[in-house]
Computed example of a mutant assay.
Amino acid sequence: MPDNVTLRAHLALLLAMLLWGSSFIALKLAVTELSPMIVVFLRMCVGALAFLVVWPWLRHGFHYQKGDWKLLAGMALFEPCLYFIFEAQALQYTSAGQAGMITAMLPLMVAVAAYFLLKERTSPRQWIGFAIAVVGVVLMTLAGEDDDQAPNAVLGNTLELLAMVAAVGYTLMVKHLTKRYSAFFITAFQACVGAVFFLPLALLADWPETISLSTFGTIVYLGLVATLGAYGLYNYSLTYLKASVSAGYTNLLPAFTLLFSMLLLGERVNLWQWFAIALVFLGVYLSQEKRQRSVPPEAPPPITG
């Protein structure tokens, strides 16, 4: 493969991670003006419309088998339904940077769930890594002071952890679906189901008389760029790189989110929180082992902000 093609594939991956990392900041900005359920509903509508436009290229990306509706329904229940209920609410109370760091817990939580539900092997090193990461998340929450970006970090981070629990359920479901469904199709299906699911919740929310152009642009960015664009770049990379290489880039998401939150939202991290963040990354590092993954690396990442 020519070097320039490989370079473009890596740059596409890096850009996809930047877009996904920025989605937490965009969601944080949107929920400061609109009800979280309105934001998620409009985002899902934008994503669903975008995927309908490119449907001619997606309609060959699946091979339905009898009984798949149960897995598809379960996947959609966990994400986008439960995931975005918790995460959109979480970003009303905690900072985007702290929420992004909590997402680093997902691989560890999946490993723990796979141990209990799928009887997959989990080494002592992974258990130690999980414990260290949990301590880091708790310390990061308790060490922070309530401010405009995180008016109630304990509540917000708890809700974000519940979003990660939903992401675990999604991850275990999607493990079986990636054998017959492309990442693009799975994401399009989630957007369409999400638009229907969040419609009544959005109708029950308090709609403002007007939506500012900046907030509307943020929602379009979430549904179009951070979803369709990022997944397009991610899938482009899978064409030229090993799936394990592409999946490895997702470890950059918490770091990018924290960086964007500091640069764009003016969030500040104190010394104890930096120590806590280091503990989270240490825990994630210790949990990495050369073993069979609980989910195929071709699967679309569950964390999309």
Rank of each mutant, 00 (worst) to 15 (best):
D3W: 12
D3N: 12
N4Y: 13
L7G: 02
L13G: 14
L13W: 03
L15R: 03
G21Q: 00
S22I: 09
S23Q: 00
A26G: 09
E33W: 09
S35C: 03
V39W: 04
L42Q: 03
R43Q: 05
M44D: 04
C45W: 10
C45A: 13
V46W: 01
V46G: 07
V46I: 11
A48Q: 02
L49G: 06
A50I: 02
V53G: 12
P56M: 03
L58V: 09
G61Q: 10
G61L: 10
F62Y: 15
H63R: 15
Y64E: 14
D68R: 02
D68G: 01
W69N: 14
L72C: 10
F78W: 14
F78D: 10
F86R: 06
Q89N: 13
L91Y: 09
A96S: 12
G97V: 08
G97R: 07
Q98H: 15
P107E: 03
L108V: 04
L108E: 02
V110K: 13
A111S: 15
V112D: 05
A113T: 05
A113N: 03
A114I: 02
L117T: 13
L118A: 13
E120L: 06
S123Y: 08
S123L: 11
S123W: 05
W127N: 09
I128S: 05
I128Q: 07
F130H: 01
A133Y: 07
V135C: 12
V137S: 00
V137N: 00
L139P: 00
M140K: 13
M140D: 14
L142H: 10
D148W: 12
A150P: 05
N152G: 01
V154N: 08
V154L: 12
T158W: 05
T158E: 02
L159A: 02
L161R: 11
M164G: 13
M164C: 14
V165G: 06
V165A: 14
L172Q: 07
K179P: 00
R180K: 15
A195L: 03
F197K: 03
P200K: 10
L201E: 00
D206V: 15
W207R: 02
E209A: 14
T215P: 00
F216K: 06
G217Y: 04
Y221V: 01
Y221I: 01
G223K: 03
L224S: 03
L224G: 12
Y240I: 12
L241E: 08
K242D: 15
A243M: 09
S244A: 13
G248R: 11
G248I: 05
L253K: 05
A255E: 12
A255V: 15
T257M: 10
L259H: 06
M262H: 02
L264Q: 11
R268P: 00
R268E: 14
N270C: 11
L271W: 15
W274T: 15
I277W: 14
V280Y: 11
G283R: 05
G283Y: 02
G283T: 03
E289M: 07
K290I: 12
R291S: 07
Q292C: 07
R293K: 14
S294Q: 12
V295Q: 11
A299C: 09
P300H: 04
P301I: 12
P301S: 11
T304F: 13
T304H: 13
T304R: 10
